[in-house]
Structures are given as structure tokens and as C-alpha cells.
Design a protein around this nucleic acid. Structure first.
Lengths: 214, 214
DNA sequence: GTCTATACCTTGATAGAC
DNA sequence: GTCTATCAAGGTATAGAC
């Protein structure tokens, strides 16, 4: 996936129009505005859903007039792509940060298990940002929505590394990493459905015990 | 919840307009048409999502003209309510059927654990019918979407009964029943996101082993 | 009771003035 | 580069003929 490479280039300023998301060359100021739009859309897609978020909503939150929009993103899908890239970038930074900060793989697994707990209030209100987006897009494009799971892949890959370091054979590590994601995602979905964060609290606790038992 | 009571009355024919969903008294034929609309909407809400399903879609599938629609359902939300009631009715029948068919509570738990596996193909394509609907509605009405979880409640209640019969104290049974739902829901969500049914297959297998270990 | 025609609104997207 | 005005399409819902 080429987006993974592009994440390393944090200095986007003045990049050429070859990037699919930007319509043309733009200066520092335009780049900032572009980022404002992405941030506003990121929050709105999460809180209201992709389809239910209109350009008017985004323009309002980003503080730009509605029409100016298409200068930065040709279509709504291009904006979605930019938002997913942004989320991917952040999740990647989180995983890399933990990987460097904690030498003990078990400790890193515990950090991953705490991801839902850390945002349990928001997740109870709006669900898992990735899970709900992926679920929504999955109903529309059966084919083209797979790019959203790149964020899950980040967590999955790091969990797999942890389990391998803990002595698990590859197939085993893969299986257990997926099991971990299933439980975290399930807890988030149920908490959102019931509007009750105890689903996250209780399952997190069980997951931590499970990690210690490995 | 009053809808639970109304489920016992399977003979709806000629009921009065006091029912919020029906606009007026209607004959057998009208009742059949009403059911056709519910069935069509049920499938479309699942496959396309609630917001993305238009009256035109439903009318098309149900074989009625677009305008005739409002004779049976005043608003889209009224139709949604009817669809949820329908799903609730079916889930209830399923739970009651198993409860009567299998005396062994552990066996009944295994049946519950197999719910996602039984429809793994559809779930991979469209997600869990309840989970995706609840997730979608949760983004719109933070307050009024709780009625959708009544279907989860059915499964939760039956699982709790099973675990109690297996000798678990009440608090324990509640906790384990929720854990079961978390895992099934998580498997469904991940399978849908990745468009890969092995998420369901693998987690189901683990859940069966877990039930046997209880 | 059943259906046609349409009102009215919001959406994503465009054209072109400045 | 930035913004206003507007378009065409599609949505829910209604009015009223038959």
C-alpha cells in the first residue's frame, strides 16, 4: 500500500499535484487549510457517519465557505481517503511509539488492550472509529472499502510481533492477535449499541487477565 | 417493553388503528401487503443500511407503487420500528424453540455460539444485522436508538439462563453471557470489515472450546 | 382503498465573478 | 486563490384523482 510510504514524508508543503487528493500546487497556507478540512471531516465522519456528513457541515466546522471545498478535494471520496490516511498515520505513530518505549512485548500487548478503555466515553457514544466506518462503507462498496482496514492491520501486525517475541510460533501468534482484535472490537460495538461503557470496562479487564495467562 | 407482549398475539388481522404503525383498520389483503413491505425493508435495511435505503427501493422490491407507501407507514421511522419488531419476533421464536428443544444448557449455549457461523456468508458481506443497524442508528439518535438492542437482550437473557442452570451464580452468569456476545459480535464486525469469513470460523471454534471449559 | 403527480427540501458538485 | 450563486439529482412526504 503506497500510503504507508507517504506517511514517512511528513513535509508535504508545496508538493505537486500528482497527489490524487490535492487538485494543484498549494502554498503553506493552503496546506494548513487542507489540514483543517481533514480534521473537521475526521471528527464529523466519526460522530455523524460518512454518508450523513454533508459538505456544509464540514465547511462550517472548518471555517471555510462551502464552495471553496472542491479546490482541496475533488470528491467526497477523495476526502474520505485523506481522512483514512490521517487516521492510519496516527495509529502508526502510536504503534511505533509503544514499540520503542516498551521493551517487554507483554507490556505492549497490555497497551493495545487498553486502546478502547482510553477512549471509552467517546466509543460508547460513537462506537469504534474504524469499526463503524468500515461497517458503513462495507454496505455500500462491497469491493472498494478494504482500504479502511489498513488501520486494523497496524494493530494486528504489532500484536503479532509481540506474541512472536513471547515465543509463540507464527500461526499461533496470528490467531491470538486476531482473537485480541475480535474482543476489543466486540466490546466497542456492544458498548455503543447499549450506550453503556461497562461493556468495555469488563471485557478489557478479562483481556488483561488473558494476556497475563499467555 | 410493550412490543414483547404484542409478539404473543400472532393474529394481527383487523387490529385497530391504535397501533402506532398502522394508520387505520385494514383487511387481510392489506395486512399481507404490509408484511411484504416489512420483509422488503428488512432485507434492504440490512443490505444497504437504513439511511441509504429509499422508499423507491422498498416499493420496488415490495411490488407496490411508491406513493401507496404512506398508507401503511406514516414515516420511515415507523417502518423501522416494524422491522425491528419483526426481527425481535424471529429471534424470540428462535430462542424459545431452542430452549424447548434442548434440555442441556451447555448444548443451548453451543447453539447460540453458532448463530454467526450459520449465516457467515451473509454476515461477511453485510455484517451482523443487529450490530450494523444499531451502530448506524447510534450515530444519529444518541437517545432514541436503544429500542434496537431488544434483540440482543433476547440472546443475552437466554445465555444467562443457560449459565445459571450450569451452576453459575447470577452475577457470574451475567458477566459470562456478555462476554459471549462480545466475542460473537466482534467476530462478525471483523469478518465484515475484512470481507473474510475466517474471522467468524476461527472465533466460533474458540468460543465452542471456551463453553466446553466452563 | 389504491395510486399518480408533485411539492419541497437537501445533497454533491459546478461555473464563473472577484 | 477565494468565494457566491446556482445546478441537477434524489430524498421524504403530501394532495388529491379515481
Amino acid at each position: 500500500m503506497e500510503t504507508l510510504e507517504s506517511l514517512h514524508a511528513t513535509e508535504h508543503i508545496g508538493r505537486k499535484g500528482t497527489n490524487k487528493d490535492s487538485v494543484t500546487v498549494m502554498g503553506t497556507k493552503g496546506e494548513e487549510k487542507r489540514q483543517h478540512i481533514i480534521d473537521a471531516a475526521n471528527a464529523l465522519f466519526y460522530h455523524k457517519g460518512f454518508a450523513s456528513t454533508s459538505f456544509a457541515d464540514i465547511a462550517d466546522d472548518a471555517g471555510i465557505p462551502k464552495g471553496n471545498f472542491y479546490f482541496y478535494f475533488r470528491t467526497k471520496e477523495a476526502l474520505l481517503q485523506a481522512v483514512v490516511d490521517e487516521r492510519l498515520k496516527r495509529m502508526r505513530a502510536l504503534m511505533i511509539g509503544w514499540h520503542e518505549e516498551f521493551k517487554d512485548p507483554r507490556q505492549r500487548l497490555h497497551r493495545i488492550a487498553d486502546i478502547p478503555s482510553a477512549d471509552k466515553c467517546e466509543i460508547t457514544k460513537f462506537g469504534c472509529p474504524m469499526g463503524t466506518l468500515s461497517a458503513e462503507l462495507g454496505k455500500q462498496d462491497t469491493a472498494n472499502h478494504n482500504f479502511t482496514v489498513a488501520i486494523f492491520d497496524q494493530v494486528l501486525a504489532e500484536a503479532e510481533i509481540c506474541l512472536t517475541e513471547m515465543g509463540r510460533p507464527k500461526a499461533d501468534a496470528k490467531r491470538l492477535a486476531r482473537h485480541l482484535l475480535v474482543r476489543l472490537q466486540g466490546a466497542a460495538t456492544m458498548a455503543h449499541s447499549y450506550n453503556d461503557e461497562s461493556w468495555i470496562v469488563n471485557e478489557s479487564q478479562a483481556v488483561h487477565a488473558w494476556i497475563d495467562s499467555l
